[in-house]
Amino acid sequence: MTCFSFRVLPAGLLVVSGMLLVACGNSDEVQAQKALAKSLSSFVMPATSAPVPALSRAELAQFNTPMIVAEVPEKALRFYMAPVAENGAVVTWSTSNDITFSFRSDVLAATRGLAVDVIESSTPSARALLSGQSGQRSAGYLGATDQISKVSYDCSVTVVGPMMITVLEKQHLTTKVQESCVADGGKIVNEYWIEADGKVRKSKEFLSDDLGYAVIERIFDR
């Protein structure tokens, strides 16, 4: 049996006012009320979930899986992700709590499980970026309207030059590439640190207006 209480006020106050409401059961209505109560209580008492802590390379090595870490500075989020599926050139990586990032030829192409997702996109390949090739990209975002809003970007790519970077205690020789894209909605600037073989070691890529950018580091390769 599942029960929950409508904690729209601190519990103590509710008991005093005789308004501690409880709903129980296994029907759809109860699940719905539970969602509503949760949403009301987060409105009144915002949840303060602790961010995922940063782990050391040795700690992560224990998971014995390829791994990336994505950080979203604007929302203080950190995701550790392992690969879960491959579809042609697209590899999907997932957190343990069902957030996925999909990369096409090492460039972020889709997300799932975020408030605003990139559902579909066209993207340059890491090799094209490394060669400084300018071009177009597009993204279809899914947000509050349940409709795909498509944005087409005109991008110019600048190869900044070689750069030694450190990704979680380990040094990598990369070439830094900047991709500057404009659309009706504004401008985004993605950055990539790409190794000689076309492998993107680190990137800062635009997610959505909602979340801003993600900084993604490839820690253990596939």
Binding site: A85, N87, T92, D98, I99, S102, G113, D117, A144
Partner: peptide
């Protein structure tokens, strides 16, 4: 939607 996005986990990717 007043909450903007959807509070829902990612789907299973397609297995090809």
């Amino acid at each position: 939607r007043s909450t903007r996005g959807l509070n829902d986990g990612a789907p299973d990717p397609v297995i090809v």
